[in-house]
Amino acid sequence: MMEIKDQLFTGLHIYLAAIDHAKDPEIETRWTHDPEYMRMLNPEPMRPLSPAQLKKKYEAIEKDEDRHDLFYFTIRNRQDERLLGFIRLYWVDWTNGNGNVQLGIGDPGDRRRGYGRETLQLLMQYAFSELNLFRLSAIIAEYNQAGLNLFLKAGFSEEVRRRQAQNRDGRRWDVIHLGILRDEWESHQGSSA
């Protein structure tokens, strides 16, 4: 059971924060030059983005947030406050209580250190106990095994397998839709705490 005073945006090693329009573009531009990072995240054709492009993108994100169907957070390290990645809740459907989650840790050296896991815990807590959503979904390609493991370990289940829905490097890959219901999150919390 959460209390009103419990912090929604602060974890043990990371915290969620708003975009830093001055500093973040210089960091994220490096990530966008990494094909592996970009392709794990998105089905769109990969392309690098300049700091100027990213500034525009951040402005568009903040404009979209005014519609209240998008919640975008940057992830930062508590020790040195450096930018680690982002997590967003998008296509929030208030009528039916649904939201979609996407998460990226930009620097390869920061992956597999538990930052993603901690971030996802915070986001689920935010979605279920602050936004009062009923369920969350995530869409992940078959070749992103680390992403799939992260969501499965957090209590998501595989719900749909869109066969051969992506074409990359000369072969086709399935795209997997995962989901978690609020009551599953509640009982999973007890077991993994």
Partner: peptide, 15 residues
């Protein structure tokens, strides 16, 4: 059929 997204819609008081 490739799968089902569980209880994704709420209508007429049911999921």
């Amino acid at each position: 059929l490739e799968g089902r997204q569980r209880q994704m819609v709420q209508r007429a008081g049911k999921r």
